[in-house]
């Protein structure tokens, strides 16, 4: 696993040039490889040499990473370093952006994610997503939760749907708060409740992986704590990749942490290692607050 380490002198050189604000030469950037343990023996999601382009400009450079079964991987890094872009590759949400191109090998349980023959509809049912801003549909709470099961034909009988709604809301920790007002609009809930509703909505289609893009950035500390607890519970059944701006959050919910910098995956390690004893200077600079 540690075959990915890089010549120490070269690494220090490239880190220093970035810290002093000098432009990194392309050749140097290409040479940079991820330090730490980007791979896993029980990979659920497997990404190799992923490059993402928005038109001409490259947002992700040669990223390779595994996300293990029932593992929570946190992705951190300064704004604009490509965390969201990378996350959105995993369920092909980048397809919806005009001019966005993804290269590399990505697979879910060994099956390719990209490819002419791959249908994104079942893929997205298996890889659910929770967004930065809570985005419940302007429908009732009940309708929000059954939306996915209905379009995928998972259930259509009222009794089955009722069961799915209760199950999903319970797992999202929202059931007790909303069970008496399932027919009220989901948009009328508080921010934290809306985000949990979105999680329930994602769970309702029984995904295997849940992607979360800064799910707590619009929430207050109490709602945030509630969702962090929830993520920990969800880990039993799901594989989770979470982008976060809060290092405390990454430390609390994840087993491994990936540090992105300017479109490169700089370091992946056990969360504890990353926050107590980072291998790479850039990671250290970030977590000690020297930039970000």
């Amino acid at each position: 696993m540690s075959t990915m380490t890089l010549d120490a002198a070269e690494r220090t050189e490239s880190a220093r040039s970035e810290l002093t604000g000098k432009k990194v030469a392309v050749s140097q950037a290409e040479v940079r490889k991820t330090v730490g343990q980007p791979f896993s023996d029980t990979a659920k999601l497997r990404m190799r040499d992923v490059n993402v382009f928005y038109g001409e400009s490259q947002a992700i450079h040669n990223v390779s990473l595994d996300i293990g079964r029932n593992e929570v991987v946190a992705m951190i890094g300064p704004s604009g370093c490509g965390k969201s872009t990378f996350l959105r590759c995993l369920n092909r949400m980048n397809d919806t952006i005009e001019g966005c191109r993804v290269e590399g090998e990505l697979s879910l349980d060994g099956e390719p994610i990209y490819g002419a023959k791959v249908d994104v509809v079942p893929l997205r049912a298996r890889v659910g997503m929770v967004f930065q801003k809570p985005n419940p549909f302007p429908k009732t709470i009940y309708e929000n939760v059954v939306y996915g099961p209905k379009i995928h034909g998972i259930a259509s009988r009222r009794a089955d749907l009722d069961e799915i709604v209760e199950n999903s809301l319970r797992r999202a920790g929202l059931w007790n708060e909303v069970k008496d007002r399932l027919d009220k609009p989901g948009t009328g809930l508080s921010g934290g409740q809306q985000q949990r509703l979105c999680i329930a909505r994602a769970i309702a289609v029984s995904p295997e992986v849940i992607l979360m893009d800064e799910p707590c950035s619009a929430l207050d500390p109490i709602a945030t704590a509630r969702i962090e607890e929830l993520i920990d519970e969800l880990r039993e059944n799901y594989t989770i990749a979470i982008v976060t701006h809060s290092m405390q959050q990454a430390a609390r919910v994840s087993q491994r942490t990936a540090y992105f910098h300017l479109g490169h995956l700089v370091e992946v390690n056990d969360t504890e290692t990353v926050f107590t004893n980072p291998e790479h200077e850039l990671t250290e600079a970030y977590i000690t607050g020297r930039f970000g």
Binding site: R124, A125, Y147, I151, V205
Partner: peptide
């Protein structure tokens, strides 16, 4: 809002399902 479309697509709606069931009702 684009976030509603993303939400629907992220759940595995096709584009026409997104339009019919989320965008137009909204």
């Amino acid at each position: 809002p684009q976030s509603l479309r993303d939400g629907a697509l992220g759940l595995g709606s096709t584009q026409s399902e997104t339009v019919r069931k989320v965008v137009i009702p909204a």
